[in-house]
Every structure is written in structure tokens, then in C-alpha cells.
């Protein structure tokens, strides 16, 4: 199976500075949906840049489908797509179609195939009617979709999302996640989400936690929530209210209008309760 593998990876900016990552090993398979947690400065962004081949490890190996990133093979950029926090900063083209075509052009894709891919991707993301329109006319949510399209059009195996919904309102956030999960189902993408919001964690299957540049946890999400809360919180992970309610004895979560997953979207109609998503700080449509 196609995998993205970190083998005892270390990284430091210069030989004299302290390491940002040390001896990190894990593997991401196609089709997996994994969350990457950790405090600010834990090395999350560095890890995603190493996975995309934008940085090279100072020790260890990063491999994408058997290709070592230190070879600088353009195939690595094709196989690993990365979406940064601010969509607007990664849009190169002035019009939607020109931005979607930027990646395939760089790969030297045959023009007829490229046009077909650009059209299909735009249609899939609901941007078909906007192909010739300037990017400046798109809303924040649409720009995020365009940024995602710019990655998907290259037909990657893995998608790295660096806080992808931090700039979106709750409605756009939900729409983005629904779209992402559909695309994952269709293409069997392996997805690594950096710092997912507590309300989004119920969609994840596995969690990685970075602490001080080292991998402190790698396992199923349920195992992470089973750990003592102070330990999890010390890693910078916010436990969703739904999980906390379950721990406190509201096993089904019904007393709070929650589904067992803790997702308030599944709240039975008419039931009112505190907003469970994100510790009561986030609204969920």
C-alpha cells in the first residue's frame, strides 16, 4: 500500500540551533484520516513541510510511496498536496482556471488532459461557473475550495491540511469538511489535519501528538481520549465537551443533547443545551 513514512526524522534550522523535531517515526497510509495535535512550537508545521518535501530532514528519512524526499523528485509534489492556513496566500492565478492549472503546468501535463482535469476539479468543487472569473471575486469559503482544488487537480495520494478551517465561518467550515470527506471517499486520500478543532475531531480515526519536537502519542483517537485529561491537556489538546460529558457519566450524551460521538450536529431537534463544540467557544451550524 502507498504510504508516507517518517523514519527517525530530525530537523533543525542550523547545526547550532536546538532541534525542532527529533527522532519522529510514523507512517500514514492512503485512506487514513489522522489528526496532528500539539502546542504552538511543537513542530507541527515543520512536520508537514518535511512531509511535503519542502524541507529536508537533517537526520532520518521521509519517504513518499518509496521515494525519498531528499531526491527532490517532482513526483513527490504530485503525490503530496499541502493546504496552508490562509488560502489566499497560496493562490497564484488571477482567475480560477489559471490557478487550478498552475500545478499541472509545472508538472508538464499534456494540455488536453490538463484542461479536462481543471474542468472536472472545478465542477467537483462547485466552482464550474467561476472558471473564468477573477479570484478576487470569490468569498473566503470559495477561496479555500479553490486552494483545495489547486492541490486535488494534481491527483495526490496524500493531503496535508494546516489548520484548514481557521479562517472560515462555521457554515463554510462544515461545508469544507463535508466536501473533504467526500473527496477522501472517492479518491482514497490519506489526510493529515494539523490542529483540528475539537468539534472536528469526531471525524478522525487516529491521532498524533507532538510534544517538544517528539512524538508523544500515536494511536486511535479513542485511546487518546482514554488518557487522563491533565496529561492530554498538557500536550495542548483540547478534549471535546462531548467526551468530557461521557467521562462524567453522561454516557449516551443525551442529557446534554449529544450523540455518543459528542457531535452537537446530531443533537435531537428541540433539545437545548450548552454548546458542546470546542468547549462552548465555537458555534456549529
Amino acid at each position: 500500500m502507498t504510504r508516507l513514512t517518517f523514519d527517525r526524522v530530525g530537523y533543525r534550522h542550523t547545526p547550532t540551533t536546538s532541534p525542532i523535531l527529533g527522532e519522529v517515526s510514523f507512517s500514514l497510509a492512503r485512506g487514513e484520516l489522522v489528526g496532528l495535535f500539539g502546542r504552538n512550537g511543537a513542530g507541527k508545521s515543520t512536520l508537514t513541510r518535511l512531509a511535503a518535501g519542502l524541507l529536508l530532514p537533517t537526520s532520518g528519512r521521509v519517504e513518499v510511496a518509496g521515494l525519498c524526499t531528499s531526491t527532490r523528485d517532482p513526483e513527490i509534489q504530485r503525490r503530496v498536496g499541502i493546504l496552508f492556513q490562509e488560502a489566499d496566500r497560496q493562490i497564484v492565478g488571477v482567475t480560477v482556471e489559471e490557478d487550478l492549472a498552475f500545478g499541472p503546468e509545472n508538472l508538464g501535463m499534456e494540455p488536453a488532459l490538463m484542461r479536462a482535469r481543471v474542468r472536472a476539479t472545478a465542477e467537483r468543487l462547485g466552482l464550474g461557473a467561476w472558471l473564468r472569473r477573477p479570484v478576487a471575486e470569490l468569498s473566503g469559503g470559495m477561496r479555500q475550495k479553490l486552494a483545495l482544488g489547486g492541490v486535488l487537480v494534481m491527483d495526490p495520494d496524500f493531503l496535508l491540511l494546516d489548520e484548514p478551517t481557521s479562517q472560515l465561518d462555521p457554515w463554510a467550515r462544515r461545508e469544507f469538511w463535508d466536501l473533504l470527506l467526500e473527496v477522501r471517499r472517492e479518491r482514497g486520500l490519506g489526510i493529515l489535519v494539523v490542529s483540528p478543532r475539537p468539534a472536528e475531531t469526531d471525524r478522525l480515526e487516529r491521532a498524533l501528538v507532538l510534544d517538544g519536537g517528539r512524538l508523544a502519542f500515536d494511536g486511535p483517537l479513542a485511546d487518546l481520549w482514554a488518557l487522563p485529561e491533565p496529561e492530554v491537556t498538557a500536550w495542548g489538546v483540547r478534549v471535546p465537551e462531548g467526551i468530557r460529558c461521557q467521562r462524567l457519566g453522561f454516557v449516551s450524551g443525551q442529557a446534554w443533547g449529544l450523540s455518543p460521538s459528542g457531535n452537537p450536529q446530531d443533537r435531537p431537534p428541540g433539545q437545548e443545551g450548552p454548546d458542546q463544540a470546542g468547549g462552548g467557544r465555537e458555534a456549529t451550524p
Binding site: G81, V92, E105, G108
Partner: peptide, 20 residues
């Protein structure tokens, strides 16, 4: 940020490109 994003999307100074 843009330079990083361009590199992530396969942009290379010496690369052979096709045209949309």
C-alpha cells in the same frame, strides 16, 4: 508564503512546463 505554496505545487525554476 507564496513561494512556499508555489514550490508545494511543483514549481521549479528549471522545470519543463506545459501551457494551459
Amino acid at each position: 508564503d507564496l513561494a512556499l505554496a508555489m514550490e508545494a505545487r511543483g514549481y521549479r525554476l528549471s522545470g519543463q512546463r506545459s501551457r494551459y
